[in-house]
Every structure is written in structure tokens, then in C-alpha cells.
């Protein structure tokens, strides 16, 4: 009995000590916390509070009845989605577009950064850098417009050139075999330059002594890039890859929505466009929330798995 009370009181003491230190910490760092407050509030108000909205995925939500009045239906929407014949098509398209992006688009900024890094003339380097950044600031609407102007069969410049060389016109915009390439190409054109920023920054942080040592050992420029620069930015590459994996099911809605047409829709329809049609246009809020929730959970799982793997290979990971 006595022992137990003693234990209890020591526990209480420890707890009150903790509380006291927490309080004193709060007191001591009050200005730091004050600084962080707007950020915390932002996340609370705009990120965490709206998250309750995902509950409508398990309801038959009707705005008229509201969140509290709508009927709960459990996993009905999820079951309906997974068993619909659209699901495998959407899943395939989303994965394939992501895969093309990962394989062909992801290495581009690294390659570009390495090339830029080798540039001798500083002015030349800066000018090229600025030029390759620029397309990032164009909206997808403009890029889609440019693509139409270049690639259409009625008046597209590329096809007119092809014809003038005696070749056949190519149906770039309406060919389901070319569509994924078209998307990847657009992404590269738009964002490859912008993607170099992080890599260039981390390359700038490489210790020059390493290069000198490599030179002493007789390494040429190729060898230096391979054995010094690349390993130095490896952890950045891994982190970006992990983050990218988390977005495997997030393929740019705008881009695909703008480029989609009846002739290619069987390879173009992805989760995002499906959610847009059903949720926004058809008003099936619950159903499309369920689809969106599924997408987010897959993304979260992928990030966790990729992070584990990265850690096992001795990398730092994102958390």
C-alpha cells in the first residue's frame, strides 16, 4: 500500500516536473513560439480543420442535410469505385503517366544541372539558367495552346513541315500511343529547367578540395562529375525521389484535362479528371471524396515505404 502511494506520488512529482519544465520552456521561448504561431494557426485552420471534410467519403452527403444530417454509408463508395470497370483503366493511366514522368522526366534536371555546372563561362551559365527557368512560369493553358498550334493537323506548324518534306502528317494530339509521350515531353519542356535549382544549389555546396583531390588522381571532367558531383548530391536526389513517389497518383490535373479529347480518353483519363467529372460536375461529393481519399492514402503509404528503403540504404530520408 505504502509502496504504491510512494510510486504514485513520485509519478505525480515527475509529471508536475515535466509540466513545470514545459511551462518554463514556454515562458523562456515565448517569442519564438509567438513567431511560430501564425504558421501553426495556418496549418490548423486551413489544413487540419478542413480535414474533417473527408468524413463525407463515408456518407451519402447532401448539402441540404449537411455534414451532421447526411446518412452514413460506410465503405459503399469505396466498394463501388473499386468494383467499377473504370477503376483499372484509371489506375493504369495514372501509374503509367507517373512512371513515364519518373523514368524520363525525373533525371532531366539532374542531367541539366550537371551540364550547367560544367559550363566555364559564368555569364553563359547564368543566361542559359534563366532561359531554362522561364517555361516554368507559363500556365498549362498557354502550354496546351502552344502544343495545339504546333502539333494540330489542320494548321500545326510541325505537320506542315513534315508535309513539305514529303512525309505524312502525324496525329500527335489524337493518337493514343503518343499521348503519354506528349505529356512527358510537355512536363520536361516546362519544368526540367526549374528542377535544376535545388541540384545546382547542392552542387555549389560541394567541397572544392574534393575536385582538387580527384584532379590529382588524374580524373577528367567526366570522372569528376561521376565520382564527386553525383555522390555529393545523392541524398538530395533520394529525398526528391521519395517526395516524388508520394505523388505517384497525383498527375497534373490541369495538363491532362487540357490535353484530353475523345480520341485519347481511354489512355488519358486519370483519378483527378474522374474526380473532377463526378465530384464537381456531377455533384457526387461523397463518391469523389472517397476516390480522393484513396489516392491520398496510397500516396502516404508510398512515401513511408520509400523512406524506409532509403534509410536501409543508409540515406537520410525525409523524416
Amino acid at each position: 500500500m505504502q509502496i504504491m502511494t510512494a510510486q504514485k506520488s513520485s509519478k505525480l512529482a515527475a509529471a508536475s516536473l515535466k509540466r513545470r519544465t514545459a511551462q518554463s520552456n514556454l515562458k523562456r521561448d515565448k517569442y519564438l513560439y509567438l513567431l511560430a504561431l501564425p504558421g501553426i494557426l495556418f496549418f490548423l485552420v486551413f489544413k487540419y480543420v478542413p480535414m474533417w471534410g473527408v468524413l463525407i467519403a463515408f456518407q451519402d452527403y447532401s448539402p441540404y442535410d449537411g455534414l451532421l444530417g447526411s446518412q452514413w454509408v460506410g465503405f459503399t463508395h469505396f466498394i463501388a469505385f473499386f468494383s467499377s470497370e473504370q477503376f483499372p483503366i484509371l489506375f493504369r493511366n495514372t501509374l503509367m503517366i507517373s512512371l513515364y514522368n519518373l523514368v524520363f522526366f525525373f533525371p532531366m534536371p539532374i542531367l541539366l544541372a550537371l551540364l550547367l555546372n560544367e559550363g566555364r563561362n559564368v555569364l553563359f551559365k547564368k543566361v542559359i539558367q534563366s532561359i531554362v527557368y522561364l517555361p516554368h512560369f507559363l500556365s498549362w493553358v498557354i502550354i496546351a495552346g502552344i502544343s495545339y498550334l504546333l502539333l494540330s493537323q489542320t494548321s500545326g506548324i510541325v505537320n506542315q513541315v513534315l508535309v513539305s518534306f514529303g512525309m505524312h502528317k502525324i496525329d500527335f494530339l489524337t493518337n493514343s500511343h503518343l499521348f503519354w509521350w506528349l505529356l512527358t515531353g510537355q512536363s520536361m519542356w516546362k519544368d526540367a529547367g526549374w528542377g535544376t535549382i535545388i541540384f545546382l544549389a547542392s552542387i555549389a555546396g560541394v567541397d572544392p578540395a574534393l575536385y582538387e583531390a580527384a584532379k590529382m588522381d588524374g580524373a577528367g571532367r567526366m570522372r569528376q562529375a561521376w565520382h564527386v558531383t553525383l555522390p555529393a548530391i545523392r541524398s538530395v536526389i533520394v529525398i526528391l525521389l521519395i517526395l516524388r513517389l508520394g505523388q505517384v497518383l497525383e498527375v497534373g490535373f490541369e495538363q491532362i484535362y487540357l490535353m484530353m479529347n475523345g480520341a485519347v480518353s481511354q489512355v488519358a483519363d486519370v483519378f483527378d479528371t474522374y474526380v473532377y467529372r463526378n465530384g464537381i460536375q456531377n455533384g457526387q461529393f461523397s463518391f469523389s471524396t472517397a476516390v480522393g481519399l484513396f489516392k491520398s492514402i496510397v500516396g502516404l503509404l508510398l512515401v513511408i515505404i520509400a523512406n524506409r528503403i532509403a534509410k536501409q540504404f543508409g540515406e537520410e530520408g525525409v523524416y
Binding site: S176, N261, G262, A263, S265, Q266, R277, N278, Q284
Partner: peptide, 23 residues
């Protein structure tokens, strides 16, 4: 129709476009 109609419409319309284009 309210719930599923537009998905069917899309499926049918896409197929029409592809048939017209010979795809």
C-alpha cells in the same frame, strides 16, 4: 442517369469519335 449518366455518355461519345476517326 444523374449519378452514372455522364460516365456512360462519355464512354459512348469517346467511342463515336474513335469510330469516326477510324481509330
Amino acid at each position: 442517369y444523374t449519378k452514372q449518366g455522364s460516365e456512360y455518355d462519355k464512354q459512348i461519345s469517346d467511342m463515336k469519335i474513335q469510330v469516326i476517326m477510324g481509330k
